[in-house]
């Protein structure tokens, strides 16, 4: 029986089932974590009625969303309206297939895993935009236009940062990138200041771009609740809306996993103890959830920026700085 489970197609299939379960559980419970965090920061208890301390709230939300009819309002482009939630959910699931959770815990160990994540991550914009467009709603269309200009603007510094990382690591295999960071937290790419003194700045640029790409506050121009109702998802109800919401959290998980792998040493232990095997996976999850908590923390601490200052930040600060780091890394690698 164990032998059957290790045949390649069966193994991949089992991993995919696991990934879908992981994503769904994360989406459900990160919503609760978000609401609890928001409550904490705003000095109120947050959801606490369903179950102990609100632990059953995601189940209740899920049942409510599933029980609602998915309405397709008249005048919408019904085909695209139905296709958009599918397109928004598929890419993060695909991306998680190449993310190594531990030394051997990876569904598909691709040589070009980094490129894989970025190429499928780019479909997300298209899906949000089609959803907004198909809704035929002024709010949704404004939101779609914002999503595109925001994502195009932040894709550039993100890719420049990734090119810098590629020059440092010399490989696109995510597992290999983590293996290079073994031996304690001073070997993590975040603190490799002898390769490039700007390495922590690179991490901050990556993190800001990740926030912008996943449309999180303070860059949540796409679903600015106070001005655009719910942005691109204004016309969606029931599980159609639920899928968009799940995809947002799945994208956060993918983005934070990538930040963990590229900068924080993935499954490597920070001080060299308790490393390898399942401990590695535990370290990975600890780092991942610390980053996700930071994302939630930022959302409820900073107000939403204005749209032009959002674009100015990218074009006037992040892109020049990331170009400088790219150049500096190249020069330092050549000299040293």
């Amino acid at each position: 029986m164990m032998k059957f489970l290790t045949i390649e197609p069966v193994r991949v299939l089992l991993y995919l089932v696991g990934i879908i379960a992981f994503t769904a559980a994360n989406a459900a419970y990160l919503v609760l974590a978000e609401r609890k965090g928001a409550g904490r920061i705003q000095r109120r208890p947050g959801p606490n009625e369903a179950g102990w301390a609100g632990i059953l709230q995601p189940v209740a939300d899920g049942i409510k969303l599933l029980a609602k009819q998915v309405m397709v309002p008249p005048g919408t482009d019904s085909l695209l309206f139905r296709a958009a939630p599918l397109m928004v959910m598929a890419p993060p699931l695909l991306c998680l297939a190449v993310i190594p959770f531990g030394d051997t815990i990876v569904a598909c160990n691709l040589n070009i895993g980094l490129l894989f994540v970025f190429s499928f991550g780019s479909i997300n914009v298209m899906a949000l935009m089609l959803g907004g467009w198909a809704s035929r709603n002024k709010f949704a269309i404004i939101s779609s236009a914002r999503v595109v200009s925001q994502n195009v603007a932040y894709e550039i510094p993100m890719l420049l940062v990734v090119i810098t990382m590629l020059m440092v690591t010399g490989t696109m295999n995510l597992g290999e990138i983590v293996r290079q960071q073994a031996g304690g937290f001073w070997h993590w790419n975040l603190l490799k200041v002898w390769v490039n003194p700007f390495m922590p700045v690179t991490f901050i640029i990556f993190f800001i771009c990740m926030l912008a790409e996943t449309n999180r506050a303070p860059f949540d121009m796409a679903e600015a609740e106070s001005e655009l109702v719910a942005g691109a998802f204004t016309e969606y109800g029931g599980m159609g809306f639920g899928v968009f919401f799940m995809a947002e959290y799945a994208n956060i998980v993918v983005g934070c996993s990538l930040a963990t792998i590229l900068f924080l040493g993935g499954w490597q232990s920070p001080i060299g103890v308790l490393s390898g095997g399942w401990f590695g996976a535990a370290w990975f999850l600890v780092k991942l959830y610390a980053l996700i908590f930071t994302v939630i923390w930022i959302r409820w601490t900073f107000p939403r920026t204005q749209f032009y200052s959002l674009l100015n930040l990218s074009w006037k600060i992040l892109i020049p700085v990331s170009l400088v780091t790219l150049l500096l890394t190249g020069v330092m690698m050549k000299i040293l």
Partner: peptide, 11 residues
């Protein structure tokens, strides 16, 4: 093609 060209066309 999907992430850049199609997005630009739709925009």
């Amino acid at each position: 093609y999907v992430g850049a060209v199609c997005v630009t066309i739709v925009f």
